[in-house]
Design a protein around this nucleic acid. Structure first.
Lengths: 222, 222
DNA sequence: CAAATATAATAGTATTACTATCTGTTTTGC
DNA sequence: GCAAAACAGATAGTAATACTATTATATTTG
């Protein structure tokens, strides 16, 4: 076993003060997840969050430079959590293809597991990822932020699953493209199912998204 | 031939006054495409656009309710243009599978064709779609705006290609999912190739994105 | 040529996205 | 047990954003 991470880790450059280290910090995280879900990231402000947690916005600014940094923090936390789930779902499994199957299941399926932390609501966070995460990297500063390592936890997840793809079929030419297409596609289709059903096939059953992408991996790789 | 549209058409609810009908309107469109490309949609304001075209922002507000409506207008224009390209690339072709092939080529490939309009820069517009179009429908108002028909031109494109998928394989279960996955995937991978190359496989050649998705359609449908 | 339509010019408002400073209260390190 | 450091609260202030409103003036059209 090499390089396995058993705890959530986000790049310290993403915050001014670690929100995990204080009560107020944890309140900021848990309430921002709720508030972003309620009103959407575009309408979300530190002022409104401050009112919700009964703290001045200036206190929130001591933890995060701005709301964009907070969003990237949440996205980063999410992918670190997904990596944790991937590790656990594949540990002690020998067969690469079985490991890949289980990984795809983690990426496509509904995950009800929790990370042992009281202040993070993973279900609401997953919802934020589906709805808002594209805004984390569709900005004029992506390149800068990428250089600073802001998207490392996402890239690690893609890397991990891509490596499994290559273990199963070492000749496959586009492992990263396949994996990022599946990951983004699953989120996208879940969003479409809820808001733009004409772009998807929801009537074909609740698990059709998982079916579609699982089938895609299996047929494309051989 | 039924239901074929030979001109660009956007939902009139998207604008207060048709920008196509006046000089100022055309200036607003062509310069917004340039400015959004330069500074990004998030930093784009009607004030800055007004400075660029040397008109007060209040004049721009007579055409569009706000910058979000303008973005949806551009996205809508783009998909109407893509439909026009799809129609032309498949007209007079009898074989459904050849029609599908040509359609996928339009969706994946670089398109250098222009629509006969002087004021629209299709290349810059395509760039905006890749970078900013997700912001058009990842909002708290999607459902409302969808009801008003703001995303109709996009849905029509997906519908058109999905119908071809079913013509080739009438038993295929997820035509919409397949097509929207390809369309969104192509844009996404182009964005990744430029900004987050770890999520894609750009080193495998410039046309690897087109190859990957073309192969995906061919292998998944059989 | 009058009426309608268009743009320009200017002003003003509420909200957003911060920054700065100052005051207390805890925590910690010796 | 006490001083220093760290932390949160309170308040104020600024520039930019996202508009709305009004009036004046130029252009088009019936």
């Amino acid at each position: 076993m090499k390089n396995i991470q058993l705890h959530i880790e986000v790049n310290p450059d993403l915050y001014l003060k670690n929100p995990d280290s204080t009560d107020l910090g944890k309140k900021i995280i848990s309430n921002s997840v709720k508030l972003i879900n309620d009103i959407g990231f575009d309408n979300f402000t530190f002022k409104k969050l401050g009112i919700q947690i009964e703290s001045p916005e200036s206190s929130i600014y001591r933890y995060f430079e701005n709301k964009h940094a907070l969003l990237i923090y949440l996205v980063s936390w999410y992918w670190s959590w997904v990596e944790y789930l991937l590790v656990f779902s594949t540990v002690n499994i020998d067969s690469p293809s079985e490991k890949l199957n289980r990984s795809i299941k983690v990426l496509t399926g509904p995950t009800l597991e929790k990370y042992p932390t009281t202040y993070m609501n993973e279900e609401l966070l997953s919802q934020i990822i589906i709805t808002e995460s594209v805004k984390a990297y569709h900005t004029k500063n992506v390149d800068d932020e990428n250089k600073k390592g802001y998207f490392k936890t996402y890239k690690k997840v893609v890397q991990r699953v891509s490596d499994l793809v290559l273990e199963v079929n070492s000749g496959y030419k586009f492992p990263n493209m396949l994996v990022s297409t599946v990951i983004e596609g699953v989120h996208q289709q879940k969003y479409f199912a809820e808001h733009l059903p004409a772009l998807t096939d929801v009537t074909k059953g609740k698990d059709s998204i998982a079916k579609f992408y699982t089938n895609m991996v299996n047929t494309i790789m051989v």
